[in-house]
């Protein structure tokens, strides 16, 4: 204990501990930055909803749009599961942001664009995220690229 207090005194004297201690203790609890995967999950839900609406309104595209809806729903579930694993939701059902509002149906062109955007978004995060997430995002990106082949 002796050496600790001596060190503390020394630190105070040199003025080091003074700014450090308040910085550690009295910083207000800032909410952590949003998980980047949460936005990807939300976008996947929207893509799925738009594809579902297209499948219902356009019989000749129903099969393809149905596949997109199914795949993007699965992406959303996998991404959301990772978000919740990392930071368990405080309220039991906080995560049902898919608004009840009617989603405008996709078109073939907007569906392709959305898949391109989703592939890019996921791919851009791949170099910097933890390893498990890199694998997950890689599969999502590759899944979106594959879906475009199915539509084309």
């Amino acid at each position: 204990m002796k050496s600790v207090s001596r060190r503390a005194v020394l630190a105070v004297m040199t003025g080091l501990a003074v700014p450090l201690v308040p910085a550690c203790t009295s910083e207000p609890d800032q909410p952590p930055p949003p998980d980047p995967l949460a936005a990807l999950a939300e976008q996947a839900r929207k893509d799925a909803a738009a594809a579902t609406a297209l499948a219902q309104s356009s019989p000749d595209l129903a099969a393809v749009a149905g596949e997109v809806a199914k795949a993007r729903t699965e992406h959303a579930v996998a991404l959301q599961a990772e978000v919740d694993r990392e930071r368990p939701p405080t309220v039991t059902t906080s995560a049902s942001p898919t608004s009840g509002a009617q989603t405008a149906p996709a078109t073939k062109a907007t569906m392709i664009e959305a898949l391109k955007a989703a592939e890019k978004q996921a791919g851009e995060l791949v170099p910097s995220v933890p390893r498990y997430r890199a694998g997950l995002l890689g599969s999502v990106a590759a899944g979106c690229a594959s879906l475009r082949e199915v539509i084309a």
């Binding site: 199914k70 899944g143 082949e149």
Partner: peptide, 19 residues
């Protein structure tokens, strides 16, 4: 996906490739 599509397999794609 292209090879499966050429073969007429459905679904041709994989939802989470590499998993």
């Amino acid at each position: 996906t292209r090879w499966r599509k050429t073969a007429g397999a459905t679904p041709a794609h994989t939802i989470m490739p590499g998993k």
